[in-house]
Write a protein that binds this DNA or RNA. Sequence first.
DNA 1: AGCGTTTTATAATGACCGTTACGAATTAAA
DNA 2: TTTAATTCGTAACGGTCATTATAAAACGCT
Lengths: 195, 195
Amino acid sequence: MGRRREFDVDQALDAALCVFWRKGYEGASYNDLTQATGVERPALYSAFGNKEALFHQALERYYEQQLSFFSAALAQPTSREVAAHILSGVAELNTRHPEHSGCFLINGALAGSDESESVRQTLIEFRAKGEAQLRERFERAKEEEDLPQTANCSALAAYVMAVTHGMAVQAKAGFSRETLEAVAAQALATWPTNT
Amino acid sequence: MGRRREFDVDQALDAALCVFWRKGYEGASYNDLTQATGVERPALYSAFGNKEALFHQALERYYEQQLSFFSAALAQPTSREVAAHILSGVAELNTRHPEHSGCFLINGALAGSDESESVRQTLIEFRAKGEAQLRERFERAKEEEDLPQTANCSALAAYVMAVTHGMAVQAKAGFSRETLEAVAAQALATWPTNT
DNA sequence: AGCGTTTTATAATGACCGTTACGAATTAAA
DNA sequence: TTTAATTCGTAACGGTCATTATAAAACGCT
């Protein structure tokens, strides 16, 4: 019983994700969010909670819908292919949508006021989780003799993530997909091998 | 004639730079700025102009005081040493001050509201200027047969800058200087040579 | 039709934003 | 010592921030 919702929650969340993706957590106002979603403020609150809760749900959606290439990359047979898939996937994702270029995890909250510190930490931990998965994948590659015993797996993982973060910054600055792919290619130019 | 200023303008600008460095342009409020500088709002306005003008002067100061290693790096004899000096300099600069880690050029304004678009563009152009200098330096290296004729100088410059931007993101996330130096070392692992 | 429940849109809340009027205080010159 | 000029701190400006109180509208059920 009761009046039924007049808007699609998933659709509104997609629109909110786009706003956060483009302007970050603090840069996105409720005016932006209501305009992008077509949903009035109280309806957003009743559907998603407050701004931080909405952002968290947008992050979850970003992970499910946009970051699936990362898990697929980890499943590649060799460490070099893993890195190549991540880098090309990032180049593509960061330039796919002209109206919100760059990476949600980086644009979301890099620097800002103290009030958004918890959001910043959330994104930091989220990125750290991905980096840890990558390091574990490289350690497996070392066991499989895909990477040399001398390889520094945590340094390699941090390196690949650094390049992706840098590409995200460049994408936000308007760099083309072709340029980002050239960066990715250079980053892979001398991947360590066991031969 | 007239009352003389009671605070040191350069000292106040240094304090303001620290605030912008840590919180970015939009994240820094006048409450933060007055507290850090010990100068009341109207005095900041009369000395520096409005917030955007103050930010521009902070950027100039950052360039003069913190980015001098970049010019020094360009003067290195080989392209590899140029890149190595830039990467190690960035690792050091981004972790030198624990209270404002990362890079002012990245933290300053990555994503945010539309009102700070001009500040964002300023930082984008500033970074592009550095990248152009680096590309020209690599082109010189190619002429000097320090880099192979097959080298893609703009891709190399974009790559080095991407790594520095990524290191800045990681520094802001709390990564140690040692980790950043490991990233830098990995980024240099397979620099193109002419032999 | 009438009741309980949920969503709707309007409009208000207090707090903070960047910016600036204003008058008191301080200085150098007349 | 008066005068003109400059800076000082206080306190306010209009605007926007995230959040919510409120009441009308729309539903399922009896």
